[in-house]
Simulated assay, not measured.
Amino acid sequence: MPETDGSGTQHRVSASVSALYRHPVKGFTPEPLDRVSLTAGRHFPGDRLYAVEVGPSGFDPDTPGHVSKMKFVVLARFAAVAKVRTRWDAATGLLSARREGRPDLDVDLDDPADRRRLEAWLSEALGDDVDAPLKVLSAKGHRFMDDPAGHVSILNLASVRDFEARLGRPVDPLRFRANIHVEGWPAWVENDWAGREIAVGGARLAVVKPIVRCGATHVDPATGERDIDLVPALFETYGHRWCGLYLSVMTDGPVAIGDPVEIFA
């Protein structure tokens, strides 16, 4: 697919999937995947299935609706979330939670008693920052997305590299908590793609809009420390607060690391 750079010159963009991630519990550890199957009208598999409320949030599992992320345990609110390492087993529903200095925990997220155990463990693991009762939430068919339109998110790694070059310091792509990392696009070319379609592996997706970034990106995902005022830096550098795209899935298809990515008019 030809793209036009700032000089008006057209060139063909060759891009591919370089990484895939799900975030089973909103705000917690990204989990790398080798492949997924996307389904039309559905979210990224295994992504944001659960959230931990700092209550009460007003979320009703019987009539689930969008609730602000600031009602939950997320990096934008608690940097120490990055110091908790979680891993979810889709086949069994078991979640493992680890934090240095705390006993390891393994729970069944479908078991109410185990949810209470996780809530108590997290309250202690996160310490004095937690100022209200925690509650693990889920609802059939619901995903705890930052934006209701954000079924799938894509990150252009060239944009991240351009940003870190201008900052003069490394920027871990995991700060942006995207589902699909793409290699091969020019930096920031994706900002003008709202309304266009993208083929990713065997699936086809529609670009909804660029992702407006928040304070969650200020936290180093490796250390759990707030070390870069990334959102103000984005605006000062580029005049916007975008990094990545929200998309919806139009047609079913498999997606794997190394698969081609093509943008259409």
Score class of each variant (00 low, 15 high):
130 V>C: 00
199 A>E: 14
68 S>I: 03
184 G>Y: 05
127 G>K: 11
136 V>L: 14
180 I>T: 10
155 L>Q: 02
160 V>M: 06
155 L>F: 02
160 V>A: 05
93 G>A: 09
60 D>N: 15
123 S>N: 10
124 E>T: 10
131 D>P: 00
59 F>W: 04
134 L>S: 01
146 D>K: 03
69 K>D: 05
123 S>G: 13
191 N>V: 11
83 K>P: 00
85 R>L: 09
149 A>K: 12
78 F>M: 12
94 L>K: 09
160 V>E: 02
124 E>C: 07
106 D>T: 14
160 V>F: 04
66 H>G: 02
160 V>G: 02
199 A>N: 13
204 R>C: 12
195 G>D: 04
184 G>F: 03
137 L>E: 08
199 A>P: 00
70 M>R: 11
94 L>D: 06
203 A>F: 04
102 R>F: 10
103 P>A: 09
199 A>C: 12
128 D>G: 05
138 S>G: 12
179 N>M: 07
113 A>K: 14
195 G>K: 11
160 V>T: 06
84 V>G: 08
119 E>V: 00
85 R>Y: 04
99 R>Q: 14
137 L>R: 13
132 A>T: 14
156 N>L: 07
98 R>S: 14
125 A>P: 02
97 A>V: 00
164 E>K: 07
90 A>R: 12
192 D>R: 13
140 K>Y: 07
197 E>D: 15
106 D>Y: 06
92 T>P: 09
200 V>K: 05
